[in-house]
């Protein structure tokens, strides 16, 4: 009987409306996902630009990109997050000051997206570069021969063809992005892991909240895996039919 009572008080702590913490956890999950999505998107943009630079850019551009990807992939995310989180907004505002613009307010969400994006960018540069170099040169040459502009070639030939090769790597990066957001807890950004810690500390039900948060993260991974599988099937199907 005591056990059942214990379990029911524990579960009431997870109720969606206060004083239950369920709603707060979901809110935290939402901000984790926001940062993961934003950071992943920014990372993809950096990745595409970086891959183009590494493949088609001049020597200086390639060397600089090499430094970026090597450094980011060798330094722990936690250190990068601390560096970028504290230095990032400072730097932006100093540049703005230098250009005689007024300082801007960079909130935690934007800073988080920026940090995750820079980290993700280095990895996706490598993934996309690998996928792009798997595209037969003939396809690109043919597109140019048809009179396409470089921008069109990128949009119509390179990106769609690249996607099939890059999908495994890119989906792996998405899963990493969702988990890397947890590191922002260390700088005090209110996302799922930090809220979990506050809930655990506040209520003293550590196991309950850490397991609940684990389940939330796990379901994000499982749903993502399911979506990735669908996308993969779809891409393979369309590729086979063309």
């Amino acid at each position: 009987m005591q056990l059942i009572a214990d379990i029911s008080t524990s579960l009431s702590l997870l109720a969606f409306s206060p004083p239950g913490w369920g709603g707060a956890l979901l809110k935290g999950l939402l901000s984790s996902l926001q940062i993961a999505l934003g950071g992943y998107g920014l990372g993809l943009l950096i990745g595409i630009a970086g891959a183009c630079g590494k493949l088609y850019g001049n020597a200086v551009c390639r060397d600089l990109l090499g430094c970026y990807t090597t450094a980011v992939r060798a330094v722990p995310e936690l250190v990068l997050i601390l560096l970028l989180y504290y230095a990032g907004s400072d730097l932006v505002n100093q540049v703005l000051h230098w250009l005689s613009y007024p300082p801007i307010d960079i909130n935690g969400l934007v800073a988080g997206i920026f940090v995750i994006g820079i980290v993700q960018g280095a990895y996706s540069t490598e993934v996309i570069r690998g996928a792009m170099s798997a595209i037969p040169v003939g396809h690109i040459e043919a597109a140019f021969a048809c009179g396409m502009r470089p921008w069109q070639v990128l949009k119509r030939i390179i990106l769609p063809e690249m996607l099939v090769h890059a999908l495994p790597g890119l989906s792996n990066l998405w899963l990493i992005a969702t988990k890397d957001t947890a590191l922002l807890a260390v700088v005090g950004f209110t996302e799922l892991t930090l809220i979990t810690k506050q809930a655990a500390g506040g209520t003293k039900h550590h196991m309950l909240f850490y397991c609940a948060a684990g389940l939330l993260y796990l379901s994000v991974t499982l749903i993502s895996n399911w979506g990735i599988k669908k996308l993969d099937n779809h891409l393979r199907h369309t590729k086979a039919s063309t």
Partner: peptide, 20 residues
């Protein structure tokens, strides 16, 4: 050229996303 354009777009998106 392609790179410049991409860089420009990425730059402007970054500027937008930092919420001026």
């Amino acid at each position: 050229m392609t790179i410049k354009k991409i860089a420009a777009i990425a730059g402007s998106l970054l500027a937008l996303s930092t919420g001026m």
